[in-house]
Write a protein that binds this DNA or RNA. Sequence first.
DNA 1: AATACTTTTAAAAAAAATTATAAAAGAATT
DNA 2: AATTCTTTTATAATTTTTTTTAAAAGTATT
Lengths: 408, 408
Amino acid sequence: MRPQFLYEKNLHGVANSVKRKQEQYRKIVRHLYYNGAASIAEIVKAVKISQPLVASLVDDLISYGMLLDKGVGESIGGRRPNLFCLNSEYQYVIGVDINLHTLNLAVFDLSNKQIFREETKYFDLENSEEYLNSLIEKIETMISQLGMPREKYLAVGISLPGLVDAKQGLSHTHLSVAEEGLAHFLSDRLSMNVLLDNDARTMALGEKAFGKAIDKENVLCLNLSNGIGLGMILNGNLHSGKNGFAGEFGHILIDPEGKLCDCGKIGCLETLTSGKILVKNIREAVDKGQPTLLAKYKKENKKIDLRAVVEAILQGDQFAIDQLNQMCEYLGKGLVTLIHLLNPEMVIIGGKIAHAGKFVIDPVTMSMNKYAMSRISSETELVCSDLLDDSALMGTMANVMRSVLSLD
Amino acid sequence: MRPQFLYEKNLHGVANSVKRKQEQYRKIVRHLYYNGAASIAEIVKAVKISQPLVASLVDDLISYGMLLDKGVGESIGGRRPNLFCLNSEYQYVIGVDINLHTLNLAVFDLSNKQIFREETKYFDLENSEEYLNSLIEKIETMISQLGMPREKYLAVGISLPGLVDAKQGLSHTHLSVAEEGLAHFLSDRLSMNVLLDNDARTMALGEKAFGKAIDKENVLCLNLSNGIGLGMILNGNLHSGKNGFAGEFGHILIDPEGKLCDCGKIGCLETLTSGKILVKNIREAVDKGQPTLLAKYKKENKKIDLRAVVEAILQGDQFAIDQLNQMCEYLGKGLVTLIHLLNPEMVIIGGKIAHAGKFVIDPVTMSMNKYAMSRISSETELVCSDLLDDSALMGTMANVMRSVLSLD
DNA sequence: AATACTTTTAAAAAAAATTATAAAAGAATT
DNA sequence: AATTCTTTTATAATTTTTTTTAAAAGTATT
C-alpha cells in the first residue's frame, strides 16, 4: 500500500480501517517533521499510540521510503535508542513568493532545506494571462532543471499580496483573471496541488514554524514594506476571518482629520505610515534640497527606493532616521489598538523595513509606551523578524506542511 | 465505576484504558448535550465510534443514571430508533452573573433550563472580603433552598466585569482581594469547581451556545452597557489572548484630539460612546431645559439612568434618539476597525443598549457603511442579541459545559 | 569487573474495537 | 395482505491495539 495521506485528505469510499491507519501514519510523520529525529519510545509518548503499534507503523513507513533509520542515538541511562527521521528527499515542496516587482522561487526538501533558490527582479505583478503564463514557465523551467519526476513534488505553496481567500484559493486583488480561481488554475496547469495565501499571513506562518513565533500561541506579524500587512496567529492558529480578509491593518482609522487613502476612506493608518509614504516624503525633501546621504541618488539621477532608505538609516543618516521615527509614532498608535484588542504575547516586524532593526523597534516601543495601557502592553514583546526577506517563502513551506500534516 | 469525567479532566495515575473510555463517554455526552436526543445510529455517525461499542457505552451511561432511554422515535423509512438523551436532572450548574450594581443567580439543569433564578438589585460590586462573604452567603442560601446535596452541582460558572484571567482564575479589576485568586478562593469556600470569565467573553459564549452565533465561526459580541466590552469568537473558539486581557475595545484610539479617558489615554472609544457618556450628556441637557420625555425624571427628582434612556428611545423620544445616533456614529467607526482586522461573519450587540434594537442597529450600520471598505463589511451581519440580559448568565452555563465536555 | 538499575525493543497474551452477519421492526410497494 | 426494502439493533467473528512480560543493551555504582 502506498501512503496516500500526504496527497489526499478525505479519501472517499475508502475503508475506515485504512483512514485510521493513515491518520496514525500522519501523526508519526507529523511528529518527526516538527521535532526531528526520534526514538520509538519518544514517538509513543508524543502520538499516544502503543509501542508495538508505533514500531510496526514505523517499519511500514521505512519500507515506503518515507522514513530513515538513523541508527543508535545517545542513551539517557539505559539501552541506546534507535533513531528515526523523515527521509528529507522523499518529497519536495515548491515555494513561490510573489511580490509586486519580484518573484522568489524555491524548492524545499522535507528538512526545510532550500535545494533550489531563485530571485527574479523586475517581475512585475499584473492581473493578466501573460503574467500567469510566465509564472508557470518559470516554475516549469525550474522543475526540468532539477530533473525530478512530478510525483516528487508534494505541493506548490504560494504567497501573494492583496486580498486572498485561502480556503477557496482565490486572489481578489492581483490575480483574479484565472476564472476557476487562481489555485485551481495553477493546479490544472502544473498538475500539482496548489496552496495559496496572502503574503502577511504566509509570513506569520513562516514565523510560527521557523522564526521567533515558535512555541508562541498569540503572535502578530507585521509586514512592513511599501504597504502594511498583518498576519495573526491566535490561539496557536492562523486567523483568516470569514472570507480570508482578516488583517487589513493598513486601513484602520488613525486620524479622522487625515489624508484621503487609496481605499476611499480618510485617515487610514497606511496614509501615515508605510514604506511608500516614507519614500515619498524623503524624495520630496531631497528635491527641496534636504541634506541627507540620500541626496546622492538625485545627483546620480537614480530613484530613491525603500531599500536605499533603509540602507541610509543603517548608516546613521539623521534625516532618514527622523522620518522613520515619525512614521513609527503612528505605527505604534495603530499597534496599540491591536494589542488592546488581541493581547498577543509577541509582535514581530517583518518586511523590508525590518532590516532597520532597532531603528524601528525603539521608536515603535516608545510610541506604544505612550499610547497603551501598560498592564496590557507590558505583556507584549516587540521584535524584528530574523527570517527577514525569507519569511514569506519559508511560510509557503510551512503552509503546505501544515495543510498536509494537520490532524482531522 | 462512577463516570468521573464530568469532574476531573486529567486524571492522574489512572490507566490509559480508563482515560480512553472516559473520552468515549465524553464524546457521547457531548453530542447529546449539544444536539439533543439521538439514536445509537446517529451517535455512531457523530462520534465516529462503532455501533456495538456505542451501544454498550450508552448502556453504561444509562446504568450510571446520566442518560435516559426516551423510547422509540420517528422512523425515517425503516425500524424505529430508540432515542437517548441526557438526564437533565443528573447534575446542575450554578450560574453567577456579577454586575456593578446587581447580582444574577441561576441554577441550570443539563437541558439548560433555569430551575432557579434570582436577581438582586443594589448588590454593589466592591473589592472587599465582605462582598465575597455576602456573595457566598447568597449562593449557600440558594443551595439550601433547593435542598440538593452538593455533589449534584457540577460547577459554578461566574461572569464578572473588568480584566479577568480565566486560565488562572484571577480577577484583576474588581475582586483581587482573594489572595489565592478568586476562583480558588470561591472553590475552597463553596467546595465546588469554579470557572471564571470576563462578562463580555461570557456573553460571547452565551451567544455562541444559545444565541445568534450558533454555528458561526467568527463572531464579535459587544457588551454595550455603561462601558463597552468585547468578546470574540475566532475560528470557532473564544479568544482570550495571552493573559485574558483581549477585548479592550473601549480603549482603542478613535479621536487623537479627544477627551481624557479614565485609563489615562486620550480619545479612547469609551470617551465618545458608552452608556455612561450617553446618560451624562442627557442629564446635562435636561438640566439645561432640553425638551424630552426624560425631563419628567427631573421633575420627580429621580435620577436618569441607562434603562430610562432606552425606554425613552423606544417611546420615540427625539432627543434621546439623536443622542444615541451620535454615539453610534463613533461606535461604527470603532467597529470598522474590528471588522477590517478580524473579518467576522457577524457582530452581535448585547448589553442594556441592545434593548433599543433597530435604534442602535440602524445608525451603527450607517456609520459602518460610511467608514468601512465595503468588500469586507458587506460580509458582516450586524444584529442585536436576543438573549439580552440573559446572555452573560447563559454564558456561564455554556462556559462550564464547554470546559467539562471539551475533547483533549 | 561484577552488580544493580535504566531504557529500549521484541514477542506473547489479553483486551478492545471493528467488521460482518443476522435478526428485528417498521415503511413502501404491489 | 403479502412482499420487498430500510433502518435499527444485537450477536458472532475477526481484526486491531494494548497490556504484559521478557530480553537486549546500555549506564551507574560498588
